[in-house]
């Protein structure tokens, strides 16, 4: 097990252009599950590939287990990586796929069977060992890819969107399986995803990336409840946080905190909303309302309500937000600031 550290890590693909990864400083904790979260093009995969040694950084250092590994090839870094496509070797059986890293790294042949069986058992794929990758389902392929990664007992696990190509139902169970797997092996894991649900559910900590810059790194609670800027605030959470410019500040509040006024006794402010549209999601309602009257006339706000709500489209209702649920950002820098007293009328 080891700690991964990057110092001012930068990758510029084309000289003179904006970097894909810019000045990333991060340090994983021993045995932690760290998630890189960001929209596509945010540099998360490039960052992961640099840590793996598949991409050369333009500047900066990568350390694994305390020593600089910039000059080391992927194989010398003792890492394991699971790819988005799983990248199973199509011409080899599952057994040979799992044994491949052992063979490639010159592990003694006598040990192969024992290790492959150990990894296969860990992932419950013993009965698939003689199959070829094309005969496997998506979930089974993922397990084979994990077994191939675990078999050499790596110091660090890198996973690049391993769930993105599974269907929704399989994804939930595969996610749980990955979590349990991480708990069992306890190896430091870096996981790349663009799916905030995955990030929140799985990560010990989440690192939010945007345009190659780290926007925030923290536990799921921290990034959700105390977003460091408006990007993080709107990227996490679905539907996203409501943002309103108010004087020198941008004020944000999450849809679940915008509730009918009778449920918010200590409301910091209230809005009269005309319901434009509503979506029923089973456990909840999503209400899209237009502010009518006052300083924010015409702005759209989103509210998330319990399934018992009975609001009608085109009707007007009063909504409120509690003081403690407000987030404040600087209007210029869009960074989080302390609470401010603002005029709402």
């Amino acid at each position: 097990m080891a700690v991964v550290e990057t110092r001012a890590l930068t990758k510029v693909f084309k000289e003179g252009e904006v970097g894909a990864v810019n000045d990333v400083n991060l340090q994983t904790r021993e045995g932690e599950f760290l998630v890189f979260l960001g929209p596509s093009g945010s540099g998360k995969t490039t960052l992961l590939r640099m840590i793996a040694g598949l991409e050369q950084p333009t500047r900066g250092e990568i350390l694994i287990g305390g020593s600089v590994v910039n000059h080391l090839t992927p194989r010398e870094r003792r890492i394991a990586m699971v790819f988005q496509s799983y990248a199973l070797y199509p011409h080899l059986s599952v057994y040979k796929n799992i044994a491949f890293p052992l063979k490639a790294q010159g592990v003694k042949k006598e040990l192969h069977r024992q290790k492959v069986e150990w990894a296969a058992e860990l992932l419950g794929i013993e009965r698939l060992l003689d199959r070829k990758p094309r005969q496997l389902s998506g979930g089974e392929r993922q397990r084979v890819a994990l077994a191939r990664a675990i078999v050499r007992e790596p110091t660090v696990f890198l996973l690049d969107e391993p769930l993105s190509n599974l269907d929704a139902k399989l994804r939930a169970s595969a996610r749980e399986e990955l979590e349990l797997f991480h708990k069992r092996i306890g190896t430091t894991t870096i996981y790349v995803t663009h799916d905030q649900v995955e990030a929140m559910a799985m990560g010990d900590r989440v690192m939010v990336l945007h345009q190659g810059y780290v926007r925030q790194i923290g536990t799921p609670t921290e990034v959700y409840d105390h977003p460091s800027d408006t990007f993080v605030a709107t990227f996490l959470g679905s539907p996203p946080m409501n943002l309103l410019e108010n004087g020198e500040a941008i004020v944000g509040f999450r849809p679940e905190h915008l509730q009918p006024v009778e449920l918010v006794p200590q409301a910091a402010t209230t809005f009269r909303l005309r319901v434009k549209n509503k979506e029923y999601l089973g456990a909840e309602w999503i209400l899209y309302g237009i502010v009518s009257g006052g300083k924010f006339d015409g702005r759209e706000l989103i509210s998330r309500l319990g399934s018992a709500a009975s609001h009608q489209t085109d009707q007007t209702y009063d909504f409120g937000v509690g003081e403690q649920d407000l987030h404040f950002f600087d209007r210029q820098t869009e960074k989080r600031t302390g609470a401010k007293v603002l005029a709402w009328r």
């Binding site: 598949l54 090839t73 992927p74 890492i79 990586m81 790819f83 990248a87 490639a104 050499r152």
Partner: peptide, 18 residues
């Protein structure tokens, strides 16, 4: 041939030539 296959092989312990 998907590029990721070669990436995987290199992470698994082969050189590019390998």
């Amino acid at each position: 041939i998907p590029r990721e296959l070669e990436d995987a092989a290199m992470v698994d312990g082969l050189s590019r030539l390998g």
